[in-house]
Design a protein around this nucleic acid. Structure first.
Lengths: 344, 344
DNA sequence: ATGAAAGCGCTAACAG
DNA sequence: CTGTTAGCGCTTTCAT
């Protein structure tokens, strides 16, 4: 039924090891036998059995990728960067969505290890993620992207590719402050993850630095949900001294805030200024024109893949790679910068 | 280093076959030994080696998924439907992006077969796709979603899950006609795929049915590209008798058309009406409000996964499943329906 | 209920 | 340059 190298060997009247050599085009056989074997393999429609190969060779040419949700543009862009780069090196990827559940993250890791993936790229870790220990204990090759653990005891030994979230948060606040806003609200994600913690640090630092009077009720966790961000925005806008500007820590929440503001009959940026984070595709649409902190998501994915593969394939003692990529504030229309420019 | 069932057997002072039985919780050993084995396995942090397992058992619990581009919201939604349903049945997925290249599609199929995936879900086939023969010849379990081959000799034997593209195209045209448009332009995708061919059939049929005078120069292939759709729209709008309405065969092209219309200083829907296809997330954003033909993408994915897995796991002679899901016209603002309603 | 042994398809020594 | 052989970790008869 299924054709194996044994079948090829039989047809070619040669040993299986010769076939193996030919198929993996290693050296050790004559050009003549090699071409002959290759021809027969093609004739027989031979398809290698990776399970058998990886059983002995100890590698699968598969990389596992753990993300939260593939329908989130951030993660699909990340996945694309990873997949294309992996392909270039001859690797496939297995995708796991955790839906932000720490238990699913653990299950995904175990599944991935069982599947025998050569390494794992993880975009979902909490700042105090309990699941990392397992990977570290097993000496399993992995790399963190996007989120990293904070104050993790073994942090020095863990590779990661992230963006400079601290500066990103700072820039957003600085921008809103300098175009004249004093009552700025912040819609954050979960404080359990480094990206948000760092962006918040940046926000706080800008508050201190510029002496912005910040009302703590104006800081609300919205869980990356468009809905929750919308609800929070509506609520905040009914306060007597309501915010005049919103910094949402991702574009999705910014979009939720936007819907809420508009539904209240208010103008953006006339009445309310808005800054997001990510620079997703939607942000640049005419009519949306979201001012946002841009991050090079595709690059994060491809760089992380490169590092991981290098780590997998090199037998030299692994050096630790920590890459931090800059962010950029993309000024469009929702912040109202063009109305009066920087006034301070 | 890596702990295997042999190690467990040694620790438990029992044979490997007993361990295998316990781990797969089949019958044939006493309850006492079973719990003992399970305990030791946990203590040792045993992680099964799927490669070894699938080498003998002939199945990998992986499903291959071939799509065009994971960053396209259509495909990421589809992938999510597939992944979640697959997980529920204990399967993982390997994702392959073809970038619409038929050669990549072939490579993906071969990679997937080599990886030993138990079945393949394909969303990329051309109407006369040459790569299907390979799968059919190998009796490889697979199912088509979204696109299907037309007039394919073995069509009766191939499962698929699609939407009713014909009716979708018809509805869009009927709608534009009935709110008063006589000069309608159509921005299509590649005529090599069934979805577009069928939507076009629907368009033609509406043209005939309602006696719409259609200018053939108003039908342009834009390759699903936002850019190309924008360029085409600009070009069409400079014609002396330019179209007053555009039907774009996906939301992405609709967005491109939208950008073009707005950049020309024209109004939507005041000057130009616009209808898209897909009902992607962006379509419903305030300020976008795209009228569009909605399809249940997530369901397509999960239904297809169910069918495929049933096919993989059942040993009964497989019956062929062809599922066609209805579309729905979602009327928002870009078509201007609310301006005057149906006038004919 | 348990164990011994064969073998899945392939690679990698090792001989010749 | 080519062939023989011993496993990789696991499941699965077949004995016991």
């Amino acid at each position: 039924m299924k054709v194996t190298i044994k079948d090829i060997a039989k047809h070619a009247n040669i040993s299986v090891s010769a076939v193996s050599i030919a198929l993996n085009n290693r050296s050790g056989i004559s050009e003549k036998t090699r071409t002959n074997i290759l021809r027969i393999a093609k004739e027989l429609n031979y398809i290698p059995n990776f399970a058998a190969r990886s059983l002995v060779s100890k590698h699968s040419n598969i990389i596992g990728v753990i993300i939260i949700d593939i329908t989130d543009p951030f993660f699909s862009e990340l996945a694309k960067g990873i997949e294309e780069q992996a392909n270039r090196h001859g690797y496939s990827i297995i995708l796991c969505n955790t839906g932000e559940s720490i238990e699913n993250e653990r299950k995904s890791m175990i599944t991935l290890m069982s599947q025998g993936v050569d390494g794992i790229i993880i975009a979902t870790v909490l700042h105090d993620d309990p699941n990392l220990d397992m990977l570290v204990a097993e000496h399993y090759p992995f790399i963190l992207v996007n989120r990293i653990p904070l104050n993790y005891p073994l942090d020095e030994k863990i590779d990661h590719v992230t963006i400079d979230n601290y500066t990103g948060g700072f820039k957003a606040m600085e921008h809103l402050y300098r175009i004249g806003h004093d009552r700025i609200a912040v819609l954050s994600g979960s404080m359990k993850v480094s990206t948000i913690i760092e962006r918040t640090r940046g926000v706080r630092s800008a508050i201190d630095h510029f002496g912005i009077g910040f009302d703590e009720r104006h800081f609300v966790e919205c869980d990356y949900s468009r809905q929750k961000a919308g609800d929070a925005t509506k609520r905040l806008l009914t306060l007597k001294t309501h915010p005049t500007a919103f910094f949402a820590m991702d574009d999705n929440m910014a979009l939720g805030a936007r819907e809420a503001v508009l539904s209240l009959g208010l103008n953006i940026p006339g009445d309310i200024a808005l800054v997001g984070f990510d620079d997703s595709d939607t942000a640049s649409l005419t009519g949306i024109d979201l001012t946002t902190v841009s991050q090079k998501i595709y690059e994060i994915g491809s760089i992380a893949t490169d590092i991981l593969i290098k780590k997998i394939e090199s037998r030299t003692p692994p050096m630790v790679n920590k890459v931090v990529i800059d962010t950029e504030l993309v000024i469009r229309k929702t912040c109202g910068h063009f109305l009066k420019g920087y006034i301070r």
